[in-house]
């Protein structure tokens, strides 16, 4: 078996995944996508791989590369369809809504006046988010109409085209924390709770992480969310949950190249090891299917 690890930089996470491959004696290549050119007519050495793990930090690049590599017949983890579903918050919300997975209310608008109408419809406070991006960047909580008008104007004037889609979400009056559940396949293997005095509670903004007990409710909603974006077999995902005082657990978003360096110690779970074991299982299943071993 041979596995490719696709990246655009080696962070602690990639290092730990490489270590997990090495310790399992799996042949692997660490491939910097920035150095690649792909001949779309000629897969070449790509067919040597039984699977490719995407750890690229740019979602645009990850999507392009996995589309090509999947076309060459190599399963990518996560697949391009999952990157598409998770990389864009609107797509994620649409899939969750389609499948009836509890999630905050969202309205989308494409024009400034319509954005203001959408915000007023959701009511104050509400949250305006770029549809792509991570680490809580450029999230805005809007408390009143003055702020709404100002932010809409700023986005229209200063934002890239990506900001011309206004994604408005109800503000969930959660306790000062959010929950992150690590899912392998569709199984919630562990989770953390991230606490902060700021309303953006994820660790990128200085939130503190503690272990989370995986209750049946948490496992259920996480599995449903994973199926919604990745189909029956699920994927390698981090599901962010918000605790709504009225509606209970809501899926806030789903990450397809999750960071986990600060979650191993509080949970005591070997997250990279569990990820790699799943990749190996998928690669084996793919190879057997290709060889016609399994029905």
């Amino acid at each position: 078996m041979r596995i490719a690890l696709l990246h655009s930089r080696i962070r602690i996470e990639e290092r730990l995944l490489i270590d997990a491959l090495t310790s399992r004696n799996i042949d692997h290549d660490v491939i910097d996508l920035r150095e690649q050119t792909f001949d779309i007519h000629e897969p070449g050495r790509w067919t040597d791989y039984d699977a490719a793990i995407d750890r690229c930090i740019s979602q645009t690049h990850a999507l392009a590369a996995t589309r090509v590599i999947e076309r060459f017949g190599v399963p990518t983890i996560n697949p391009a369809s999952v990157i598409e579903a998770c990389g864009d918050k609107l797509t994620t919300s649409l899939l969750l809504a389609r499948d009836g997975v509890p999630t905050p209310r969202v309205r989308v608008a494409l024009d400034e006046a319509a954005a203001l109408a959408a915000i007023e419809h959701i009511g104050y406070p509400c949250v305006l988010k770029p549809t792509t991006g991570s680490w809580g960047r450029l999230l805005a909580r809007i408390n009143d109409r003055d702020a709404a008008e100002a932010i809409i104007e700023h986005k229209s004037t200063l934002g890239s085209v990506a900001h011309s889609v206004f994604y408005v979400q109800e503000y969930v009056d959660k306790p000062q924390r959010d929950l992150r559940v690590f899912v392998v396949g569709t199984q919630a293997i562990c989770g953390i709770s991230r606490q902060s005095d700021h309303w953006i509670t994820n660790t990128a903004r200085g939130g503190r992480a503690g272990a989370l007990t995986i209750t049946r409710d948490i496992a259920d909603i996480s599995a449903r969310a994973a199926r919604s974006v990745a189909g029956e077999s699920g994927g390698l995902l981090a599901i962010d949950l918000l605790e709504c005082p009225r509606r209970g657990l809501l899926v806030s978003e789903i990450n397809h190249t999750m960071e986990f360096r600060n979650s191993i110690e509080p949970t005591g779970v070997d997250i990279p090891g569990r990820m790699i074991d799943w990749v190996i299982e998928r690669a084996r299943a793919g190879a057997e299917a290709a060889a016609g071993v399994s029905a």
Partner: peptide
């Protein structure tokens, strides 16, 4: 120096 964070970078 590593490249600056881009708009589409993330988890």
């Amino acid at each position: 120096l590593a490249p600056e964070v881009q708009e589409d970078w993330g988890e």
